[in-house]
Structures are given as C-alpha cells and as structure tokens.
Design a protein around this nucleic acid. Sequence first.
DNA 1: AGCGATTGGTGACACCACGTCAATTTCGAC
DNA 2: GTCGAAATTGACGTGGTGTCACCAATCGCT
Lengths: 222, 222
Amino acid sequence: METALAKSPVSPRVEPLGKREQTKVQNRELILEAARQVFAELGFGATTVRDIIRATPLASGTFYNYFKSKEEVYQAIRDDVALAIRPRLREERVKAKSVEEFISSTFRTFMEFVADDQVNFRTIRHTADTTRVRLDTPEVIAGFEELREDIEKAIKEGVFPPVDADFLMASIVGVAFEVSDRMMLREKRDPSAAAIFATALFLGGIRTLPHASHPSSGAGTA
Amino acid sequence: METALAKSPVSPRVEPLGKREQTKVQNRELILEAARQVFAELGFGATTVRDIIRATPLASGTFYNYFKSKEEVYQAIRDDVALAIRPRLREERVKAKSVEEFISSTFRTFMEFVADDQVNFRTIRHTADTTRVRLDTPEVIAGFEELREDIEKAIKEGVFPPVDADFLMASIVGVAFEVSDRMMLREKRDPSAAAIFATALFLGGIRTLPHASHPSSGAGTA
DNA sequence: AGCGATTGGTGACACCACGTCAATTTCGAC
DNA sequence: GTCGAAATTGACGTGGTGTCACCAATCGCT
C-alpha cells in the first residue's frame, strides 16, 4: 500500500500515464503541430514528409510510427476539426422543433465555429498558390451522412417537407463551405451575417435575402 | 503567286501549320490524354509525372517542354472544361430577363454540361481513394468572378434585389458543385431533376422544393 | 534539291524524398 | 539492478524530379 503512494507522493493526477504513453502522445502532437505550420506555409501539395519531420526534433523513421503519409496527417488534422464540430451541430439539430430552427442553428453554429478556428483555416487555405484544395476525409464525410440522416428523420416526423434529402444535404454543405470561405476572406469576419444570409436563402429563397448595406459588399477578390 | 499555290497543290487546308507546329500540338494533346487516363486510374495525388510520360511514346525530358509539373497538367485539363462551359453560362445569363431565368438557366446549363462530361468527371473523381479533392484553377475562379459581376449587374438593373452578390455567387457555386456531384454518383443521372431542385431552392427556399418520389431517394452512399 | 541554322526530342545524371530495417536507446516490470 | 519489450534513430536501396549536353528533324534560304 505504502509503495503505491510513495511512488507518486506529490505527482499531480494530470499525468496518470507512464513516461512511455506520455511521449507517445507528445510526439504525435509534435508532428501534428509541425504539420499545421508547414502545410500553412508551403501548401499541402508542396509539403513533404521530410519537411514536417524537419520541423520537429524527431528522426525521419519516427514519423512512420505515427502516420503512414502526409495524407494521413492531413486527415488527422481535418478529423480533429470534424470531431469538434459534429457533436455541436448534431445537438443543435436534434433540439430543432421546426425547419427554421434546424436551418438557422446549423448555419449559425457552423459559421461561428469556422470564424473562431483561424488556425485550421490557415492550414487549409495556403495563400501561396492561387489554386484551392479541398480534401474531404472519412470523418468529414461521416458528418455529411449524419446531416442527411437527420434530414430524413425530420421528413419522417413531418418537420420537413418530403424533399430529396440527399440533394438538400449537398446544398447545405455546399453553401456552408463556400459562404464560410468567402466570409473568411473578408477584412471583417461576420459569422452572424453569413449565417443569416444562408438561412434566409434556404428558408425563403433569393427574394427573402437580407439587403446588402453596400452595393459591392463583396470586398474585392482578395 | 504561282509558287504559293504550287507549294500546296492537293494539301487540305486543315494542315496549314508546318510539321513543327503540328507535332507540338500533337504532343501536347498526347500528354493531356495520357494524364486524363492516369489521373482517373491512380488519382491526382498518387500520379507522378513519370506515370504520365510512361503512358506516352515520349521521353521524360519532353514533358517539361510542355508543362512544369503535374499540377500544371491538371490545371490545363480543368481549364479546358472551364473554357468550354463559361461562354455557355454567360450567354444564358445575359439573355435572362428575370431572376427566374437567371437562376434556372444557370443550373440547367451547368447540370447538363456535367452530366455529358463523363471523361473529365472521372478524371477528377478517382474512386480509389475515399477522400475527394477539389482544385480551383485560375480559369475556374475567373468563372466565379464573372458570375458575381453578372449578379452585380443584375442588381444595378433592378432584376435582382440588392443582396450580397459575393455570398450569392458563393452559394450558387457551392450548390452547383455539390449537387452535381451527388447527381453523378447516382445510378440514373438526371440533370433535369438536379437543376429543378437547385432552382426551386434559390427561388423559393426549402418549402418550394419538389417532393421526392421515394422517401430515401439518396440512393445510398455509394 | 542542297545546306547551314534552329528548334525541339532524348535519356543519362545529380539530387532528393520515400519507406524500411537492423542497431541502439529508453522505459517498465520484477 | 537486471532483463525484456517497445520505441527511436539514421543509413540505405529504390524511384521520382528537373536539367542539360547531345543529336535528329525541320525550316529558311539560295
């Protein structure tokens, strides 16, 4: 009995793991953090596994103990984001008692999340190249399927009209991604305005969209 | 005068170019065609310049006389598509006399084009990987900007309500890409149904969408 | 036609990234 | 403290990258 306590007399319980497990978690995070930086700087295409490991105190072989390729690292980064936002979105949707709530809470939650998440946005939007890359990982795709299932459930319960759930899911995804992307390119990020725009579009179509304050609120191409 | 005619007595005027220019055009097309096949088979990420050149009778060095990298080849392929569809879309939009025409002709033209264009679709949607890649080339982005300008013009002329043209452009693009993608994954491709869905969404919102014939018309995940 | 000049194809080469693996270090259990 | 397991290391073979000196084909001119 005494030994067990003596072994960790003052140790905070935040480290209940052995040294082994600790460095394992640490190394993984080291690689992910380095990858975020390098992806943001060079872009996904130009980045090599060597670039990532060089931004780390680890040896090249160690990389392959944690990931199979740079694709898998990228996937892990995106999956982290997806895992963070999926439960929030789902929670909002199950609470929704009407089409209005379903749509507006979905867009509001999504836009606010994206606006807060500068790090991952910069990881994905590499400014170097003019070309834009979008990679949908399994976890992200699972989020899409979840949305479709919720729409189908809402239709069965009579909350939604009996529309094509697959196309509606695709439309919500498309608008959420594209509009959030434009939102992030603006000087002043306004997730509320973006969410209101998308919500109005889905609930009433173009004619119910809010009127823009300035004629060319597009704020240029930059 | 006589010499000029004598130089090509029977030659069809389809080859007014010298031999030099001819093989140049031919080699470029050879590379592009090989690239389309290889991209479709291996996916963009796994494809190497060597894979492309190997699917060709040319030597490796020759590739670099035509393109700097596989990215540039991919860009050329996408730009061909963009150059083919942009004038058609623009023509439809300038003809439009109302919001209804603007939106419906845009989606109809786009969906029909995508449905007809199996080759380029398979080039981009490599079934091998679960992850999906979307690369927007400068030409494609120019098409987006063109759409936004047309929206702004329509607003100035009073055809459109004074909405946020940038967000509206992004929404149209997002829905067009995502819905067309789902359309192409279905057993029976129906560009008309896809266009009607997208049009109804933009003109009147969810509640005016056509009712789906089957409850789960999503046709699974495949 | 014949003949230099020029353009463009060729493939070997130096460089580097990839993924592996045997040797070595580090940790955990007894 | 000692032994076995687990993880790290970096050198290595393989193969892709982009370049360049060389050479063949075409062009312009007489």
